[in-house]
């Protein structure tokens, strides 16, 4: 693996592509590259899990291959599939030919539909493989992922075993809507990303929202921290505090107070019950 010599080099590189890591993030990324292990990134929505994988691809100058997980994702969408339509056409065209030749023919490279996992394994250049929201797949698919991550090879009955031509850097993300299997977790380094502390959130805002005044960024980070402490159904994430900063900037507001916050709460909070709760808190003398 093209290596960073230290966690602080990782931090510097990530910062260079506008991703602000904390110490834990750069340490774990550094270690994952040293130990050549996948990283399982877990945390609430909108704290920069997916973005981390993108940033890693960028700092390594690698292609990002993303497998977006969902309920019902199976091998044919994750790994590979035969192009039945094309096979059928070929069969019709070859009518009368010897079955064995036809078989060899239609189960060849030309008829293979590569899905993200296979694509990542066969890429001649090393890539970053992002397996996003892995907690959504069924156990069977989780087992498939485990197999691929275990030996970085897959066997396709008609083609034989395909081993990785280059080791991808693998990032899995999870919102922990379901606990993952112990076997998968054992295979990975674990990185929990929580909400950033107030200083890092301010820096993220300043990086992601051009022209945001320092003072306003500070206030926004403070108010967001305060609101996150309320017993909410869904606390505001980093992406929401960025949205809020953009909104305030667009409205030409240069100072946050109770009134402004109350009027724009819907940008920060997604549930009406949460908005009401926060409004009450803000109205408190």
């Amino acid at each position: 693996m093209s290596g960073f010599a230290s966690p602080s080099e990782v931090a510097e590189a990530l910062t260079g592509v506008q991703y602000l890591p904390d110490e834990r993030i750069s340490q774990v990324v550094y270690l994952a590259e040293r130990l050549d292990k996948p990283v399982l990134v877990e945390g609430p929505a909108g704290v920069g899990k997916t973005e981390l994988a993108k940033a890693l691809a960028e700092i390594h100058g690698r292609r990002l291959i993303r497998l977006q997980c969902y309920e019902g994702l199976d091998e044919s969408k994750a790994l590979y599939e035969w192009n039945y339509r094309k096979q059928l056409l070929r069969l019709q065209a070859d009518e009368g030919a010897e079955w064995s030749t036809v078989e060899d023919d239609i189960f060849s490279e030309d008829f293979l539909l590569e899905r993200p996992l296979l694509e990542a394994l066969r890429s001649p250049e090393p890539v970053v493989l992002l397996i996003d929201e892995v907690d959504r797949v069924e156990i069977e698919t989780e087992a498939l992922l485990l197999e691929v991550l275990a030996d970085f090879q897959v066997s396709i009955p008609e083609l034989g075993t395909i081993a990785a031509s280059s080791r991808p850097l693998v990032v899995l993300t999870s919102n922990n809507t379901r606990d993952l299997s112990d076997a998968l977790k054992r295979r990975c380094l674990f990185l929990h990303i929580g909400y950033p502390d107030i200083e890092r959130e301010r820096e993220i805002l300043l990086t992601r929202v051009p022209d945001l005044p320092q003072k306003l960024a500070e206030q926004i980070a403070g108010v967001v921290r305060h609101i996150r402490d309320l017993p909410l159904r869904k606390a505001p994430s980093v992406s929401e505090s960025i949205d809020w900063a953009r909104t305030l900037l667009a409205l030409g507001i240069d100072e946050v107070n109770e009134g402004v916050t109350t009027d724009t709460l819907h940008v920060l909070l997604k549930y009406q019950a949460d908005i009401d709760k926060a409004a009450i808190e803000l109205a408190r003398p």
Binding site: P7, E23, R24, Q27, V28, L31, A32, R34, L35, K37, V39, L40, E42, G43, N176, D179, D182, K185, R186, C188, L189, F190, L191, H192
Partner: peptide, 29 residues
Amino acid sequence: DAAAAVEHVGLEDREALRHSLAACLVKNA
């Protein structure tokens, strides 16, 4: 894994060691 991590990280920087060992040994937030 944890033992291998120590090889790479060393013992001087305690927080670096903490994060590294946690990543290897704790898989539940």
